[in-house]
């Protein structure tokens, strides 16, 4: 009797445990899956915390878990959007115009970082002790681009060179890609390259958050660019979600938490923008393409 009672209890226990083990995974799964947001490390290493806070904020606001997807280059993010593997992405101007051409993404919002417009600058920076005073002085020197698809970090200097019938290959002794503006700043600082073209937004961000990192550098040329780096969504995103996301971004400055995150990121607010503000970028891109050797092998 006693023996049988114990056996029954054991069996019941095992069944219970199995049941619990089966239920747990299902419980943690969501019906829709998390919202995936892709970001290139625009912000320098060591300052990525606001990114995470922003993702969490967005997730909380749309009442879905949000997942941060980080890639090193814009190209990778472009690919992810095209494959539908991310829902939202922070991209560059060139990325956007190329992605839109392929119908891979739609414009959502753009940040205001300078004055009250969606304009910004591309800074040409060199070391303070350098004799280089203009882009032309950089001939035969080493230069750092950020991303091949970066507007301020690649397109603008390439455009300037194209205007004097030069390409990076002919003009520079050596050029490299750092895939981040802060890396470009570091590359110039340590002497890996002699100059770089960087986003004014990052420069200003570093100047205020980490003055040491730009202390050895000076800006020798400033070039204004129209259309800050936009936030895009996957082309086939559900319109309701897109609208909800747009509102979350636009309303960020209206609540305390959102303002704090914007503040940390050096962004004043997000605004609605029209696709046409990126026309200037399109012009530059085409100009460079025309002048560049069609047979040039594209970097990633």
């Amino acid at each position: 009797m006693v023996l049988r009672g114990t056996k029954r209890f054991k069996t019941a226990s095992i069944l219970l445990i199995l049941l619990i083990l089966l239920i747990i995974p299902f419980e943690s799964m969501e019906a829709e899956g998390p919202l995936r947001i892709a970001i290139t490390p625009v912000l320098p290493e060591g300052h990525l915390e606001p990114n995470r806070e922003m993702i969490n904020y967005i997730g909380d606001r749309i009442e879905r878990s949000a997942e941060l997807v980080q890639r090193r280059s814009y190209q990778e993010i472009n690919d992810l959007l095209q494959k539908g593997e991310v829902d939202v992405a922070f991209v560059g101007g060139v990325t956007y115009i190329l992605g839109r051409d392929k119908s891979a993404m739609e414009l959502l919002v753009a940040p205001v970082v300078f004055d009250e417009s969606t304009n910004y600058f591309s800074y040409l920076v060199v070391r303070k002790d350098s004799p280089i005073r203009s882009l032309l002085d950089l001939k035969g020197k080493r230069f750092a681009f950020t991303d091949p698809l970066s507007t301020s970090g690649k397109l603008l200097p390439a455009y300037l060179l194209a205007r004097i019938n030069e390409t990076p290959e002919t003009f520079f002794k050596k050029y490299i890609y750092t895939y981040s503006h802060s890396s470009s700043i570091e590359a110039v600082s340590v002497g890996l390259v002699d100059g770089a073209s960087v986003d004014s937004y990052i420069w200003d961000f570093l100047s205020s958050k980490d003055p040491e990192s730009v202390s050895r550098l000076k800006i020798i040329e400033r070039h204004e660019l129209i259309g800050t780096t936009p936030v895009v969504v996957r082309n086939d995103i559900e319109p309701g979600l897109k609208e909800r996301l747009r509102r979350v971004f636009l309303d960020m400055e209206r609540d305390q938490r959102g303002r704090e995150i914007l503040n940390k990121m050096g962004i004043k607010r997000f605004v609605d923008v029209k696709d046409s503000i990126y026309n200037a970028t399109r012009e530059m891109f085409k100009f460079v393409e025309r002048r560049t050797d069609p047979g040039r092998k594209k970097k990633r």
Partner: peptide, 8 residues
């Protein structure tokens, strides 16, 4: 990949 930055 001639990725000087990563090398650095």
């Amino acid at each position: 990949h001639d990725d000087i930055w990563e090398l650095y």
